[in-house]
Design a protein around this nucleic acid. Structure first.
Length: 112
DNA sequence: GTCGTGACTCGAT
DNA sequence: AATCGAGCCACGA
């Protein structure tokens, strides 16, 4: 496994641990993955994730609490949004969510 | 090898 | 609250 791949693996690993009904911001995922400040990489890594993966990429939102999904993707996008609503996440003004309420609070200290 | 672009974030205006 | 610019790194042309 290359260094680059290992970074992505960390990102995927963090995202996979997000419990239902909770969300994480790109910056936070980056920090947990040991990539503080590299929030853009997280977005890139998740962008390359396939729909059939076991990674709940849709549970990762930007710092504003908005979902950052690609409209160019399949219709599965808004389907995932619906999924988040079923998990108990309330959307404000259509696309925003209350980070204060649904932001995942990491229960453990991850290694750097 | 360089260059432009992007599922981002932050601070200043 | 909204917008702008700078910083960050990977990838394709």
């Amino acid at each position: 496994m290359n260094d680059r791949t290992s970074k992505y693996h960390k990102i995927y690993d963090v995202v996979r641990q997000i419990p239902p009904g909770k969300v994480l911001t790109y910056g936070l995922v980056a920090e947990l993955a040991g990539l503080y400040g590299r929030s853009r990489l997280v977005g890139y890594a998740l962008f390359r994730v396939e729909i059939d993966s076991d990674i709940p990429w849709q549970r990762v939102v930007n710092a504003k609490g908005e979902i950052s999904y690609s409209e160019a993707r399949c219709g599965g996008d808004y389907l995932q949004k619906n999924l988040l609503e079923e998990e108990g996440i309330e959307f404000i003004k259509g696309d925003r969510i209350d980070l204060k309420k649904y932001l995942w609070r990491v229960p453990i200290c991850l290694p750097e």
